[in-house]
């Protein structure tokens, strides 16, 4: 299977998808990501705009309404599948850090 061009998820995309497990508008996504990452990931406006465009285009997030001129987005089922696949991939890497399965293939 050909790997999707957004996979593995970049740090930006990863945090945005995680933040959008609840419906949020753009600026609130930035604030939540800053919180979730303990202040290490601070999204800039252009980056966030492009990422939302991109995730929306691939059907991983979808618009769920407006409040004034602000548009709210939320993760889709497909987006959640991506997250669970990334969860497996990262859990495996973490297990290697912790010294698991050292001689599985030898």
């Amino acid at each position: 299977m050909k790997q999707h061009k957004l996979l593995p998820l970049s740090e930006t995309m990863h945090y945005i998808l995680l933040a959008l497990r609840e419906p949020l508008h753009g600026y609130a996504v930035m604030q939540k990501v800053e919180n979730l990452s303990h202040g290490t990931v601070v999204l800039a406006a252009g980056t966030l705009y492009g990422a939302i465009e991109n995730l929306n285009k691939h059907g991983w997030i979808e618009p769920v309404g407006n409040s004034g001129r602000r548009k709210f987005y939320v993760i889709t089922t497909e987006g959640k599948e991506i997250l669970s696949r990334e969860n497996e991939r990262l859990s495996h890497i973490v297990s290697l850090y912790e010294g698991g399965e050292p001689n599985e293939n030898n």
């Binding site: 970049s10 740090e11 930006t12 990931v41 601070v42 999204l43 800039a44 406006a45 252009g46 980056t47 492009g50 990422a51």
Partner: peptide, 9 residues
Amino acid sequence: NEIFSDRQS
């Protein structure tokens, strides 16, 4: 002060 915060964008 930036509008882009990662390499990808």
